[in-house]
Amino acid sequence: MDIINALVVFANFVFVPGLAYGAQLALGALGVTLVYGILRFSNFAHGDTMAFGTMAAILVTRGLQAMGISFGPLPTALIALPFAIAATAALVLATDRGIYRFYRKVRAAPVILVIVSMGVMFVMNALTRFIIGVDEINFADGGRFIIAAREFKELTGLAEGLAIRTTQVITVVTAAVAVGLLFWFLGNTRTGKSMRAYSDNEDLALLSGINPERVVAVTWIIVAALATTAGVLYGLDKSFKAFTYFQLLLPIFAAAIVGGLGSPLGAIAGGFLIAFSEVTVTYAWKRVLGYLLPADLAPEGLVQLMSTDYKFAVSFAILVIVLLFRPTGLFRGKSV
């Protein structure tokens, strides 16, 4: 019984939240890795692209709610998602036209594009704050729990409860669908293959008649879709605040780099690795250990390796370790 209770506590506080957070990071890292693979720079504006997309979703959600439209037990934001993706795609395509394309034309060095993307980041962030403000916004509606802790306890008769929130399940399912679509696209469509070819060898891709502007445009649209989805899922799971997405940049980049920049599979693996590391290191293991160890060995303290305030340090530490020992990342992306 004690072991099962320990497992339930573990699932409740580590596994389920880690899985949801990992899915959000994986989606974010996929966007970063695609931009890196195709456009060959690290896009610092990605976090704020997510913020912009989420903001668009919130605005559409409010509109839908005002019209009395809801999605039953599911959050209305899911209906708003396609509209938000379209808005974000329009924004990033306009940014590409107005800004990045110029630097492509003059064949600017990647480091210049990185700096340019920082500029874009500030503008996008300001735009988001200007439109929706800086306050914390909760926009998750519909049913809150699939299983509430109390129901779980009554059902199983265990001392510990397992709560699974609707948003967590939606996060994992939506992320799985998005990743499935992306891989189908990259592996089975001619355009997807052109993108892989372009990422492999730009010169040769051009010589094979692949139109670079088209590849770039398709990439931005996919990146907008991934960023908006990631942002909305994160916002549903936690809450929306214009500045938190900027802070997500570190774990997202860590995930993409750990997995190997330019490798989609690596981005997913990296996302879960970073998420689970962050959660396990900042979780207080006292209760899990209390069940597992004999009573006289039960820990007095919290058995928390690091306070949650330092959670970003985890991403940073993993990033440094990987860069030291395997600079191309776990899945051999392009070296950084």
């Binding site: 469509t189 001619r190 070819a197 139109n211």
Partner: peptide, 12 residues
């Protein structure tokens, strides 16, 4: 097979 670009598979 990458070479002859611009065929029907190009269109989603």
């Amino acid at each position: 097979m990458m070479v002859p670009a611009g065929q029907s598979g190009e269109r989603l």
